[in-house]
Amino acid sequence: MPGELTLLPWAEVTARAARSATVVWASDRARRALGPEWPTATWLTPDGRDAGAAASASTVIAVGGGALLDHVKLTWRARAPAATTLVAVPTVWGSGAEASPVAVWTADGRKQFRLDPELRPHAIGFDPRFAATVSRDRARAACGDVWAHAIEGFLSPLASDALRARLAALIGRLLELPVAADGRWFEPGAEAAALQARSSVGLVHGLAHVLEPVLAPGVLGHARLCALLLAPVLRWNAATSTTWAELSARFGVDRTGVEATVATLGEVEARRALIPAVEASWRQVLRDPCTRTNSALVRPNSLAGLVAELEAAPVGSPDARP
């Protein structure tokens, strides 16, 4: 894990949860998964309407998906006294909210971001048992989110060679994981987000950030959009620029293995269904900050090539992976 992230053993997270000065801010799914025996002194509701109880806490343990973790970061962490501690426990991998200084929310129909080192949680706890609560489809989307962070961070024009070397090593470890609900995704998922935050993301995230509020809320979340878009965008990048070929060779990334794996993240019909929204929102996509740090220059006339990849990029079966 990157040096600034403290990884707590699960026994330590459990011990802290029992302390009177700790409150646990958890999603309903997380609370069910933890069970009644988890020795929590104070629970908060997921929406934080009773967050006043956190004002005097020395530790807040946030347990949930990326949306809940970002909500806690924005509503409590940003205003908490310096001496307090936020422990983030993700119930699904992918967003990296547990490791990132960025918080994301939607307002006025647009994705909004706040980047502030103070938003980064102090410590992370992983309980691999949460993986059992993640459905097959959600797992595939979450894996796509991790892959998108790792690849776009690696290809970013803002990445240093040292950062690329670390992301290349991480990509090698991701290739050993199945695209499935598996507790081994939690730690590399956090690492991908933390490392990517030191460079930038690219067109996959530029598209996802614009499309997510445009599409029916809840129908296609950020992670699923990243999973759907990664393979066609990577193919478009490769057709447009030599960066992916050059950097993968230079840093020893198994390009063929990566391309075969990301092809298993997509679904043909769901991907094609995005095309009208991509076409309608293209001008906005071009102006998105993530698009502007893509590894290949995204031009107004890039739309046709991208649509062709959305139509035709091959899709592999996760079950067929070696």
């Binding site: 024009p157 803002l158 930038s200 447009t240 620029s241 900050p289 502007r292 740090t293 893509n294 590894s295 290949a296 220059l297």
Partner: peptide
């Protein structure tokens, strides 16, 4: 960000 895009574009072009 325009600086970054321009650098990428100069390299590519």
């Amino acid at each position: 960000l325009g600086v970054v895009s321009l650098a990428v574009g100069i390299h590519q072009t």
